[in-house]
Every structure is written in structure tokens, then in C-alpha cells.
Nucleic acid binder design. Structure first.
Lengths: 208, 208
DNA sequence: GCTGTTAAGCTAACGCCGTTAACTTAACGG
DNA sequence: CCGTTAAGTTAACGGCGTTAGCTTAACAGC
């Protein structure tokens, strides 16, 4: 539908403030009020655009799923990298998808609800394969999600396109920064080679 | 100044959309245009309120600094927990502080620029004390910051006040969720158990 | 073929909003 | 006493989301 596409473009161009009913109407050659025959209001229109965005969002995850074996750490990292890439290749979109909402009424469900279950499944499989240590999969999935989400939102909030952390080796893109972070993520998650099976089991029980 | 206080209250009550020049003016008993003699516009007014917020924000960090010894992992975790507590005890404030900005013009400096240097210093000291393994302190500081920032922004975005991750032990507050995450954070950051017997004992106690 | 219904468009208008322009008023220094 | 400046005012402009009320075309049923 033309209205949705125009709204999506405006959203991508200038964020939610740049999307006005009158502007959308101009782009599709209608009067502003005509849109109200198809959408309940601006809020509804934005919501529909966001729903469109979920598809595009999930493509990044699916792409990662195809490239790496199930149950591997590489797959988990690829999911995270896909998250970062999606966010920065569709910045305005992401801003809308995960904008900090004031209004509790808007939030009937989690953003990327479908995407979460994919992540969770990958976590479960990585635990079963022994790639990462065993723990509550929801907890680990949330941990992974929030970790990468923080990287993205903080860099978006600060309009950072690059991070000059290490003077000796400046990190160019958000993706590179994420890759630098994976060291910490992995060392916190993967089964330690030096550990015996017994200590691993002991440690899992201790964590409860 | 009364205008700033009224603006701060409106911001806290309903976010940036609930702050209108006319509303602020009403609260302080002026006409809307009078505000323009003290502030350049709404954007400027919001910016000043945000600057006020930095103070409050830093209080949480300072409080943590007082309670834990320098160079300890506990201090790093306390800083993170302060971040979470600040965010959820001042939700509307935090939303403004770290709102995902569309406009690159607004971003002259990092939010909480001062707070970052405190965090970085704590990271450096934790490395020197051997509490965490040695790496680029900026990288680690960014890692810690983004990790906790992601937790906060994601829960705020989804209006989650609690997380039912583990069915057997649902995590009530964001702070509790953060504490559950610290296991992963620590195991990725601290000096490995094989390197020091003392830290290992500490960890066992900490996990309860 | 007429008619009732429905979808989809329109214009006009309401009440907000941020902001500007032009004017008034009070305080104060020379 | 006058000029300047700070701080207030009202009126107005253009834009916004949204509602009300009207028109028009398409289509189903008699």
C-alpha cells in the first residue's frame, strides 16, 4: 500500500517527527484526512510501519542462521553482528523499532518477539552442543540481547559512527566494536577448555 | 530557576512530548513567549534540564564509589547497579538523557561524559589490582557501559518492569536481572580462577 | 433499473503546538 | 531626565493530529 511506503520512507528519512499525516498524504497524492479511512491515526500508521520492519529485521537473523552451524558460538555471534548491522544500515528504522516509549499503552508485545525465540533456540542448541556453559537459556538469551542492544543504542544515542577506544588500533565501525566485545562475551559464556567435566557440572550447580 | 523546575517536572511526568512551552509557562505563571527571554527555544530548554540531570545521575555513581574499595570488582558492579537504579527510579529523566536522537546537531558531546571517565578510572584500577584481566581500559569501559545500558534501554523500551526469565526463579526488578547478569560479566572479565586462589574463594562467596 | 450500503475521497474546522513580531513596563546608570 | 536593557505582554503565523460532515463511485439485492 502506497501510504505505508510513503510513511516508511519519511520515517527512514527523518524519524518519527518527520512523519506527518499531511506529508504522507502529499506523497501519495491524497488529502491528509483520507488516511484516516485506512489507519486509525498516526500512532496506528507508525505501528504498521514498524510491523513491516520486523520482516526486514528478521532477514538479518535468517542470513546468519544459514551461514553458521547450529549450536555453534559462531552462530550466536553472527546473530549479534546481524543485529548491529541491521541497526546501522537501517538507523531511522531501528530508532522507531526500539525507540524508548513513554506511553505504556503502545507496548502490547515485545519488539522482535519472533526474533527472540530464534535467539533463544540458538542458545539452547549451543548449550546442548557444549559450546557455551549451561544456564537458564532465557537468562543467557536476554544477556546476549541486552549486550548487543546496549552497544547499538548507546552508539546511536551518541551518534557515534566509530569508537576510538584503542589508540593503537582504532575501531572503525560499530560492527568492529562488537567484534572487539566478543572476546568478553565468549570468555563469559564458552566452556573453558581447561575445566574438566566435573568442575563444569559443579559450577553449573553453584550458579543456581 | 522556576522555569527549569517546571520543565523538569513535566519531563519527568510525561516525557519530552508532555513538555510544551505553554504548559511550562502556565506552571510558572507566565506567558509562553516570556520563556524565550531566558531560553532560546524548546530544544535549549530541554538541554538545560538534561544538564541538570547529569548531576543527579552522577550521585548514583558517587554513592557506589563510597561503598566499595577502589580497584574491586564489587565497585564496578555497584556502578552498573547504580546505572540501573538511576534509570528506573528516574525513568522519564533517563529517557530524555539517553533518548535516541535523530538530530546529529544535538550531539555535541557524549551523555554522561563525566561519568564515563569515572567508570574508566575504576576499570584501570581494577586491572591494576588484578581484579579483572588486563586489556584496553576504554574497550572494557565501553563494554561494561553498553552491557548495562542495553539492559536498561531494552527494558524501558518494552516497558518491562520485571523479567520472567527463569520460571523456577522469576527475576523481579531490573536490578535483580542485572545481578543475574553479573555472573556472565564477571566470568568474562575477572582474572581466571587458575591464576589466583584468593579470587576464586571470593567468587564462591559472592555467588552465595 | 432503482436503491441502500459501503468504501474512499474531499473541505472546513478545532484546538493544540513552537515560534516571531511588536509593544509595554520597570529598573537603573550617566 | 533620558537611554538602555531586561522581562513581561498580546497577536499572529504556519504546522500539527484529528473530527465532522459532505460527495462520489462501486456493488448487491430487489
Amino acid at each position: 500500500m502506497a501510504i505505508l511506503e510513503a510513511a516508511r520512507d519519511l520515517l527512514a528519512e527523518g524519524g518519527v517527527d518527520a512523519l506527518s499525516m499531511r506529508m504522507v498524504a502529499d506523497r501519495v497524492g491524497l488529502s491528509a484526512t483520507a488516511i484516516y479511512h485506512h489507519f486509525e491515526g498516526k500512532q496506528d500508521l507508525v505501528k504498521r510501519v514498524v510491523e513491516m520492519g520486523y520482516q526486514r529485521f528478521e532477514e538479518y537473523g535468517c542470513e546468519a542462521m544459514k551461514r553458521y552451524p547450529r549450536g555453534s558460538i559462531e552462530l550466536l555471534l553472527a546473530l549479534g553482528e546481524g543485529y548491529v548491522r541491521f541497526a546501522f544500515e537501517n538507523q531511522s528504522y531501528f530508532r522507531v523499532l526500539f525507540n524508548i516509549q513513554r506511553d505504556p499503552r503502545d507496548v502490547e508485545e515485545l519488539p522482535s518477539g519472533g526474533g527472540y525465540h530464534v535467539l533463544r533456540q540458538c542458545v539452547v542448541e549451543a548449550m546442548e552442543s557444549g559450546a557455551i556453559r549451561k544456564a537458564d537459556p532465557d537468562l543467557v538469551a536476554h544477556y546476549l540481547w541486552t549486550s548487543v542492544h546496549g552497544l547499538v543504542t548507546l552508539m546511536l544515542a551518541c551518534n557515534i559512527q566509530k569508537c576510538d577506544c584503542a589508540a593503537e588500533a582504532p575501531l572503525g565501525s560499530p560492527v568492529e566494536l562488537f567484534r572487539a566485545f566478543t572476546t568478553f562475551l565468549i570468555d563469559g559464556l564458552r566452556t573453558r577448555p581447561s575445566e574438566s567435566r566435573k568442575t563444569q557440572r559443579n559450577r553449573s550447580e553453584k550458579l543456581k
